[in-house]
Design a binder for these strands. Structure first.
Length: 350
DNA sequence: TCTCCTCGAGATCT
DNA sequence: CTCGAGGAGA
């Protein structure tokens, strides 16, 4: 949908897209989680590009604790249409008449794909009226959809244009989750996901139907995630947007500790790759024993546990920077010991 | 080693 | 848009 304004001097400013301000500045965040309350969203459009194409249908279903508790489904009449010439009219019977001229809102490719015809669109409400109601329905819930950036980008522009407000809801993309969890699949189109899980794909490409299909996929994906990971949280930490492994992410549920344990109250730092366990598991053990995890060697550090540095080509003399710093501190008289991972395992076995 | 970048490849939505 | 690789700097 082309949206622009022309000022007195005839200067054209795009209302959306690469226009007056940073594009979709207030868009929500892409989340990796499976919320209890959410709205599954899908739209049908006249094409793939929000700059030139329009929304023709909005479908959305609200779920609470796995159950449907609300539904929004409505066709939309776009502002834009194109005129048909005599040749066009010979080829189709699906067109509308505006001011005596034959016009189409959507081409035959979209009609074939979605089953939505120009005749159906003709009786629909205008975008602005539909969006007003949809805005109320959506509220500020988390949005879920397949490749949901597509839908959100269209709606974001339409919200700004018609309602003069951004669409800032956070969202969960089932395609992003599927790509992470179903690596063995070559493609991750909605259709591929339904085939993998044997989910009914009938009625696809109408907005609200796609919402139901997407929700079924979502529930299957959640099961797969829990099969492959200990928790949703662990899964979330495995994605690239997650910023590394930080000591503050390791917490313990224990409330009582053996104060005699050699690691109790001690600040432990790891360097290198541990042979027998993941660093995060080792850090978890430290936390459960009442020890304190840190990210770097400081004056407060008590133990530096040495893993294997062979994988790091930058370390030529066999000592990491953490180890050098630890040895320096020890010479200065600090209460710090550099231990091998085997010594660490002996300590935690007691 | 750790953190923060940039950049290119690849894929999905109608 | 997201991911992963590879580089710069700390």
């Amino acid at each position: 949908m082309i949206r622009f304004s022309i000022d007195e001097k005839g200067k054209i400013t795009l209302e959306t897209g690469e226009g007056k301000r940073k594009v979709r500045e207030l868009k929500g965040n892409s989340l990796i989680e499976f919320p209890n309350n959410y709205v599954v969203l899908d739209i049908e459009t006249t094409g793939l590009d929000p700059k030139f194409d329009s929304i023709i249908e909005i479908g959305a279903i609200r779920y609470q604790n796995g159950k449907e508790i609300g539904r929004f489904s409505e066709l939309v009449k776009p502002d834009a249409y194109y005129y048909l010439d005599e040749e066009d009219i010979k080829q189709t019977s699906d067109y509308c008449v505006v001011d005596g001229e034959p016009i189409q809102y959507i081409n035959s490719f979209i009609t074939d794909l979605t089953g939505i015809t120009n005749k159906m669109i003709e009786n629909a409400r205008d975008e602005k009226d539909v969006l007003k109601d949809f805005d109320i329905f959506l509220s500020d819930d988390i949005i879920i959809g397949h490749n949901v950036n597509f839908d959100i980008n269209f709606l974001y522009d339409a919200f700004e244009y018609n309602l003069d407000k951004p669409l800032s809801n956070d969202f969960v993309d089932t395609m992003r989750i599927a790509r992470r969890i179903l690596k063995e699949l070559k493609h991750h189109r909605l259709r591929d996901i339904t085939e993998y899980y044997k989910i009914n794909y009938e009625g696809a490409h109408r907005a609200v139907n796609d919402c139901m299909i997407t929700d079924n996929c979502l529930k299957c994906l959640q099961e797969s995630v829990l099969l492959q990971f200990e928790s949703i949280d662990e899964f979330a930490k495995s994605v690239s947007s997650y910023k590394g492994l930080s000591a503050k992410d390791i917490t313990t549920s224990k409330t009582e500790f053996d104060e005699e344990h050699p690691l109790y109250g001690k600040v432990c730092i790891f360097t290198g790759v541990l042979e027998k366990m993941l660093r995060k598991d080792a850090m978890q053990i430290v936390a459960d024993l009442g020890g304190i995890n840190g990210n770097s060697v400081t004056a407060k550090t008590n133990y530096l546990i040495l893993g294997n540095n062979d994988y790091c080509s930058l370390i030529k003399d066999g000592k990491s920077n953490k180890q050098k710093k630890a040895e320096e501190l020890k010479l200065k008289g600090n209460d710090i010991e550099v231990i091998t991972e085997n010594v660490f395992y002996d300590m935690i076995e007691n």
